[in-house]
């Protein structure tokens, strides 16, 4: 009756697109190198890591999470992000039909190896629009310094 709502056109282009996405994800977007602790396609949340002259910025794409349930720890330069995502889908019974269930739910945990020169005491974490952003300052010695010429 309402199959048009959930059937996806499986045209050749859609399949190619899906394959391209799978490849680009498992190889890292844009060919950027992946860390040994970042696993293949399908991990939740997906993580991007960037570096500025003064900090390392970690972005975890984790929509629909209660910020209070997020657990972020740094131990021996390993950043761990864990938490749980509540399920919105109702229990399957005779009255409810489930057509698509692609969104991951339940407990998750991921780890990221940080560069050696970060200062684990200076960390800031913010959660906005479903993206967890963690800024870890570089240690003072690793930050660019201007040397006065006498």
């Amino acid at each position: 009756m309402i199959d048009t709502m959930f059937s996806r056109p499986q045209s050749l282009f859609d399949q190619l697109d899906a394959m391209h996405r799978l490849l680009s994800r498992s190889l890292g977007a844009d060919g950027a190198p992946g860390g040994i602790r970042s696993v293949a396609y399908g991990a939740f949340p997906e993580i991007n890591v960037g570096r500025t002259p003064t900090s390392v910025e970690v972005f975890a794409f984790a929509p629909g999470i209660d910020a209070a349930s997020l657990d972020v720890t740094i131990e021996r330069n390993i950043l761990k992000i864990s938490g749980a995502r509540a399920s919105f889908t109702p229990a399957r019974d005779a009255k409810v039909q489930l057509y698509a269930n692609e969104r991951p739910e339940g407990r998750f945990s991921r780890a990221v190896t940080l560069p050696d020169d970060v200062d684990p005491m200076k960390v800031e974490a913010k959660y906005r629009d479903g993206v967890l952003r963690i800024s870890i300052a570089l240690s003072a010695a690793a930050q660019p310094q201007r040397i006065a010429v006498k």
Partner: peptide
């Protein structure tokens, strides 16, 4: 996302500037 201008990627699992999906209603 307000990204610092001087940031370079160490690694990236996603590159998703835009989401889009279409459904047909009955």
């Amino acid at each position: 996302m307000d990204l610092p201008a001087d940031m370079r990627a160490l690694w990236a699992e996603v590159n998703m500037p835009r989401f889009r999906r279409t459904f047909t209603l009955s």
